[in-house]
Amino acid sequence: DRMTSQEAACFPDIISGPQQTQKVFLFIRNRTLQLWLDNPKIQLTFEATLQQLEAPYNSDTVLVHRVHSYLERHGLINF
């Protein structure tokens, strides 16, 4: 699994950072998509996403918020 070119453009700090940071991003992105796909008729809020993310992935709330906002803005969740 890899970041898309659009994700890389929107998250230059992640793509240029350590490999582990990219893996954390990918986990948060994929898990958020999975959470929404589990029940697409219900809006997936940032707060609900954060509550359902497993530790330690829920510890970087800023990154979780950025990923959630990106997915929502680009019509990948909550459409």
Rank of each mutant, 00 (worst) to 15 (best):
D1Y: 09
D1H: 05
M3H: 02
M3L: 12
M3R: 02
M3N: 03
T4Q: 05
T4E: 05
S5Q: 15
Q6V: 09
E7P: 00
A8W: 07
A8E: 15
A8Q: 14
A8C: 13
A9T: 08
A9D: 12
A9Y: 06
A9P: 03
C10K: 07
C10P: 00
F11I: 02
F11W: 01
F11L: 03
F11G: 04
F11C: 02
P12L: 06
P12W: 04
D13V: 03
D13W: 04
D13S: 03
D13K: 04
I14Q: 01
I14H: 01
I14M: 05
I15T: 13
I15R: 11
I15P: 03
I15F: 15
S16E: 11
S16L: 11
G17K: 05
G17I: 01
P18M: 07
P18L: 08
Q19C: 09
Q19N: 15
Q19P: 12
Q19E: 12
Q20L: 11
Q20K: 14
Q20A: 12
T21M: 12
T21F: 07
Q22K: 10
K23N: 14
V24R: 13
F25W: 07
L26F: 13
L26M: 13
L26P: 01
L26H: 07
L26W: 07
F27N: 10
F27W: 15
F27V: 15
I28D: 00
R31M: 15
R31S: 09
R31V: 07
T32L: 13
T32M: 14
T32H: 02
L33Y: 07
L33K: 09
L33N: 03
L33Q: 10
L33M: 08
L33E: 06
Q34G: 13
Q34R: 11
L35C: 07
L35Y: 06
W36T: 04
W36V: 02
L37G: 14
L37S: 14
D38Q: 12
D38I: 09
N39G: 06
N39L: 04
P40N: 05
P40E: 06
P40D: 12
K41N: 12
K41H: 14
K41P: 05
I42K: 13
I42G: 12
I42S: 14
I42N: 11
Q43L: 12
L44H: 02
L44I: 07
L44W: 04
L44F: 02
L44C: 06
L44G: 02
L44S: 03
T45N: 05
E47I: 08
E47P: 12
E47Y: 08
E47S: 13
A48V: 08
A48N: 07
T49Y: 01
L50W: 05
L50K: 05
L50A: 06
Q51A: 13
Q52C: 13
Q52G: 14
Q52A: 14
Q52H: 11
L53I: 07
L53N: 02
L53T: 06
L53D: 01
E54G: 14
E54L: 05
E54R: 11
A55N: 05
A55P: 14
P56L: 03
Y57Q: 02
Y57D: 01
N58Y: 05
N58R: 12
N58H: 09
S59I: 05
D60G: 04
T61Y: 08
T61S: 15
T61C: 12
V62W: 08
L63M: 14
V64G: 02
V64R: 00
H65V: 03
H65F: 12
H65E: 15
H65D: 07
R66D: 06
R66W: 01
R66H: 05
V67W: 01
V67P: 00
H68S: 03
H68E: 01
S69H: 11
Y70Q: 00
L71F: 02
L71S: 02
E72I: 09
E72V: 13
E72P: 00
E72C: 09
R73H: 15
R73A: 15
R73G: 15
R73T: 13
R73M: 10
H74N: 14
H74Y: 06
H74S: 12
G75T: 04
G75K: 13
G75Q: 10
L76W: 09
L76Y: 10
L76S: 07
I77M: 02
F79R: 15
F79Q: 15
F79G: 14
